[in-house]
Simulated assay, not measured.
Amino acid sequence: MKRKALITAAVLGGWVVSAMAQMTPEGLWRNVDDKTGEAKAEIRIAAGANGVLHGRIEKTLVSSGEPLCTECTDDRKGQPKLGLEIIRGAQKSATDTLWEGGRILDPENGKEYTLRLTPLEGGKKLQVRGYIGPFYRTQVWTRVE
């Protein structure tokens, strides 16, 4: 009886840890084109030093024309879009489900936005919101299993 209880507790504990681990922006995400609704790219978000997040384009799913970030104005200018770091500096806020304070780059137009990331639906989706002043643009990315 004790053994069965221990096994049950271990399984349930594993589910809880797995679910909690998913409530983070870390992982592989698929974004969609705002205009067409088609899957556009896969972005890998990972934590670096002190839990600061960064994200790179790991895979492109549609041809977007120019393979280089010609519109970028910083150190990413002229760099290949594949492998390009588009998320920099996001940190976990005081709330458990919000990461902010970083920047996100749109490699199509070279614009950089203040960033906020919020996991949704138990971590299956990620709300990605970029701000310029009072204006913002929001996308919902889907976790790639």
Rank of each mutant, 00 (worst) to 15 (best):
M1Q: 10
M1R: 13
M1F: 13
M1H: 12
K2V: 13
K2W: 08
K4T: 13
A5H: 09
A5W: 11
T8Q: 07
A10T: 14
L12H: 05
L12V: 15
G13W: 06
G13R: 07
M20V: 07
M20R: 09
M20S: 06
A21F: 05
A21T: 04
Q22K: 13
T24C: 06
P25D: 02
P25W: 08
E26H: 11
G27H: 14
T36Q: 02
G37F: 06
G37T: 05
E38T: 09
A39Y: 03
A41R: 07
R44F: 01
R44Q: 08
A46P: 00
A46F: 09
G48D: 10
G48P: 11
A49D: 15
A49M: 08
V52H: 04
H54P: 01
R56E: 15
L61E: 10
L61P: 09
L68W: 03
L68E: 06
T73I: 04
D74L: 06
D75N: 10
K77S: 11
K77W: 02
G78T: 00
L82Y: 03
L84I: 10
E85D: 05
I86R: 00
I87E: 02
R88P: 01
Q91C: 08
K92R: 15
K92E: 12
A94Y: 07
T95L: 11
T95R: 14
L98I: 08
G101F: 03
G102N: 05
G102T: 02
I104W: 12
D106Q: 12
D106K: 09
D106R: 07
N109H: 09
N109R: 05
N109K: 11
E112S: 12
Y113V: 00
R116S: 12
L117V: 02
G122Q: 06
G123K: 11
K124D: 08
K125W: 10
L126N: 02
L126T: 06
Q127F: 04
V128L: 10
I132E: 11
F135L: 14
F135N: 07
T138L: 08
V140F: 04
V144R: 07
E145P: 13
